[in-house]
């Protein structure tokens, strides 16, 4: 149900853009909605992070995934169980750039009463490809928002198009993004457990990103649009000097609208894992809680059962056994 709902929703969004443009609402789709989306994205993102930040981290709860620092002759695992800030930076970098924890993934199964574990790196590979290509695609888009285009953006473009196939050159990351997105979707459908846990909110962003990638690829290679005019529009957006040139194909507006929706949707969705991963207390804390005291800002006052109360109840028994007491 969630899947169908999300699919219909994304198709409907594309249709809305199509109809909107046909009705001549270029200003709305080319200027107003993109700006709104950016504002919602920034404000929503910041508000969410502030909300997380407002909740303190009362206890020191890193999940330790390697040997602790204890005696000097025992070799510590400094990345999976860091005892210094540097170690935590390393651990977080591995998580964020290389999806370290996902790399541990196994497939557990049962065969003849035996639990068996198979290596299962596909999810790791698929998500890494997905995210990395998404990131590169995003960065490559800077060429629409800068003039002159910085050299390094052009360089990424050149590397990305190293295959030198077709005109314009085929850019690898777009294709990889589509393929990896497709893999993540198929996995959701065919892995029975993942399918069982999936919600509309899991399919929707996937379809949306696939939709963005698809419309982008269509526009670049198949239904070509006037790129000079597109740049006129995007530069206008970037320099707050807006105008919508006539004669840009409708596919561009579909692309732009889907992106606008993605941005606006971002802060209210699971996509916030982008911000969340940095704050995760099981990953970003140094495992030194016996070495340095961690302070809980709301450390509660509690009732305790004092030694005096204990001795009052058991004094006679203690004396009989020769256990020292405070009050004879």
């Amino acid at each position: 149900m969630g899947m169908l709902f999300s699919l219909v929703a994304v198709i409907a969004l594309a249709a809305i853009a199509f109809i909107g443009v046909k009705l001549g609402l270029l200003g709305l789709f080319g200027i107003i909605l993109p700006y709104l989306a950016i504002i919602v994205f920034l404000a929503g993102f910041i508000m969410k992070v502030v909300k997380w930040g407002k909740s303190p981290v009362p206890f020191h709860i890193p999940t330790t995934c390697g040997q602790q620092k204890s005696l000097p002759w025992i070799k510590q695992n400094k990345l999976d169980n860091p005892s210094s800030t540097l170690g935590v930076i390393g651990r977080m970098a591995l998580e964020i750039l290389l999806f370290r924890s996902l790399f541990r993934n196994l497939k557990t199964d049962m065969k003849d009463g035996k639990v068996i574990y198979g290596s299962n790196k596909w999810l790791w590979l698929g998500s890494l490809a997905f995210h990395l290509s998404f990131f590169v695609v995003l960065v490559r888009h800077l060429r629409f928002f800068t003039e002159p285009v910085p050299g390094w953006v052009n360089m990424i473009d050149a590397v990305d198009g190293f295959m030198q196939m077709g005109v314009p050159h085929l850019l690898m990351t777009g294709v990889v993004l589509l393929a990896a997105g497709g893999y993540l979707f198929l996995r959701r459908v065919f892995n029975q457990q993942v399918r069982y846990i999936s919600l509309a909110a899991d399919y929707f962003p996937l379809f949306l990103i696939i939709g963005v990638a698809l419309s982008g690829i269509l526009m670049r290679y198949f239904i070509k649009v006037d790129i000079v005019k597109v740049k006129e529009l995007t530069m206008g957006l970037a320099t707050l000097n807006v105008s919508v040139p006539e004669g840009i194909g409708v596919i561009f507006f579909i692309h732009l609208f889907l992106i606008s929706v993605l941005f606006a949707y971002f802060p209210f969705s699971k996509l916030m894992h982008l911000g969340g991963i940095f704050l995760s207390p099981t990953r970003n804390l140094v495992n030194n809680s016996r070495e340095v005291r961690h302070v809980n800002p709301w450390n509660p006052e509690v009732h305790v059962h004092t030694y005096e109360e204990y001795e009052d109840e058991f004094r006679e028994l203690m004396k009989e056994e020769g256990i020292p007491v405070e009050k004879e």
């Binding site: 909740s55 981290v57 009362p58 199964d109 999810l123 919600l199 894992h273 995760s280 207390p281």
Partner: peptide, 29 residues
């Protein structure tokens, strides 16, 4: 609790339901 524990608020918000944890629990296995 959401106000007191960042872990709680964050973990409520950011799960992507990738399922990597699904078959790692001994009770599920």
């Amino acid at each position: 609790l959401l106000k007191k524990f960042r872990s709680f608020r964050l973990f409520m918000d950011i799960c992507v339901r990738c399922g990597a944890c699904a078959d790692k629990c001994h009770f599920f296995i």
